[in-house]
Simulated assay, not measured.
Amino acid sequence: MDIERFLAQAGWGGAQREPLAGDASARRYERVGGERPAVLMITQPGDELQRFLRMTDWLAAQGFSVPQIYARAPEQGLLLLEDLGDDLVARLIGADPAREDELYGLITDVLVALRAVTPPAGLTELDGRGLAALTKLTEDWYPMTAAADLSGDIARAFEALDDGQRVVSLRDFHAENALLLPARQGVARLGLLDYQDAVLAHPAYDLVSALQDARRDVSRQTETAQIARYCAMTGQDNAIFSAIYACLGAQRALRILGIFVRLCVAMGKPRYLEFMPRVWGHLDHNLAHPALAQLRATVMAAMPRPDVPLIEEIRRQCATRPIA
């Protein structure tokens, strides 16, 4: 089935199409005009697309705002989705920084609501071993100055702090994957995108993903306030939760640094390198927690700071190590 035939069968035949900005994945998006605007997703058939469909159906059934699926041809890698608009949280705060507390408060509300629902079957649990496996990517791609067992240190740190809580984690949860839908009520006011990699994880995982954003600065005041607010709303011990938050924040920062190097060196996408100093700042902040002393020692002994010379050296290697 070609795209024109797919759109015609869905009722959007002959509609105008224009590309939308993509992300770090292989997916492409187009906005499709008409009386009812829609978004066309073009991707590879397979497990990732099936996960997207399952999570979309599940989140919608729980009352969260995800794009309605108007038409689907998963065997062709084609979906026609509801257009949730352009009011990305990142864009709204960029236009009016005074809205930061309000909009991150809504993000926190959604995470509190998400922990209250029974997770769907089949999600992978992100435990110490899983976190270690994700961190291995950094050891493989970041320009290390010495051998380092980052993944082992992450696993040991998390297992020492883990209180056993697990909730649905959307994983790639940040201000460019969330939209304000002011006409809706409650947590449905936040539209969710890019959740196909959902797992079972500690509740701090998505909170740190949102509050320590690789792409934009979130004030430390807002971060501290939302951590305290989440703890108050869910009955967490702030000190215990903050230690796990720092551990997961360090793990995420390490992995993101490795991903950004891989995107440049393997996939020819250097634009993500500009975010590396911010991510290093998150890493440094998290590693200041006393519970992460061993991890901090490992990082500081083996990982050079992504300063301008290092970033330029990575840039010179752009697209030189394609993944087979």
Score class of each variant (00 low, 15 high):
283 L>C: 10
9 Q>V: 08
88 L>G: 11
13 G>Q: 09
305 R>V: 13
267 M>P: 02
188 A>P: 06
20 L>Y: 03
259 I>R: 00
170 L>T: 03
174 H>L: 06
118 T>I: 08
319 A>S: 09
189 R>P: 12
124 T>R: 13
189 R>V: 06
3 I>R: 07
68 Q>F: 01
292 L>Y: 11
258 G>Q: 02
214 A>M: 05
250 A>R: 03
116 A>T: 08
293 A>Y: 08
218 V>A: 15
268 G>Y: 05
265 V>P: 08
254 L>N: 01
8 A>E: 15
36 R>G: 08
132 A>R: 01
193 L>G: 01
96 D>P: 11
17 R>T: 11
241 F>C: 05
46 G>R: 04
16 Q>I: 09
228 A>P: 12
135 T>R: 05
113 A>G: 10
2 D>K: 00
11 G>V: 10
166 R>C: 08
116 A>F: 10
179 L>W: 09
57 D>P: 02
255 R>E: 13
232 A>R: 04
231 C>R: 00
245 Y>S: 03
184 R>N: 04
319 A>M: 03
225 A>L: 14
45 P>V: 02
108 T>M: 10
212 Q>E: 15
285 H>A: 14
33 G>S: 15
75 E>T: 06
215 R>S: 02
260 F>G: 02
159 E>M: 05
85 G>V: 06
146 A>H: 01
240 I>A: 14
144 M>C: 13
219 S>W: 10
269 K>C: 12
97 P>G: 10
262 R>E: 04
250 A>I: 08
119 P>E: 07
145 T>Q: 13
66 V>I: 09
318 C>E: 10
89 V>H: 11
205 Y>R: 09
106 L>F: 11
176 E>V: 03
124 T>C: 06
102 E>A: 13
316 R>Q: 15
218 V>D: 12
136 K>M: 12
303 M>K: 04
298 T>E: 14
173 F>H: 04
18 E>R: 15
117 V>P: 09
206 D>V: 01
28 R>W: 07
59 L>W: 00
322 P>G: 15
282 H>Y: 04
62 Q>L: 04
122 G>T: 09
96 D>W: 09
96 D>T: 13
152 G>K: 04
217 D>E: 11
32 V>F: 14
55 M>R: 01
67 P>M: 02
157 A>R: 00
115 R>Q: 12
71 A>K: 00
159 E>I: 00
160 A>M: 01
305 R>Q: 14
75 E>C: 05
61 A>Y: 01
29 Y>K: 09
164 G>Q: 01
49 L>P: 07
55 M>K: 01
20 L>V: 02
69 I>P: 04
163 D>C: 01
96 D>M: 10
148 A>Q: 09
66 V>C: 13
243 A>C: 04
228 A>L: 13
121 A>L: 12
186 G>R: 00
65 S>R: 06
182 P>A: 11
155 A>W: 02
176 E>L: 07
118 T>A: 15
102 E>L: 14
239 A>L: 11
183 A>E: 15
16 Q>Y: 08
240 I>V: 12
267 M>T: 07
229 R>F: 14
152 G>N: 03
259 I>A: 02
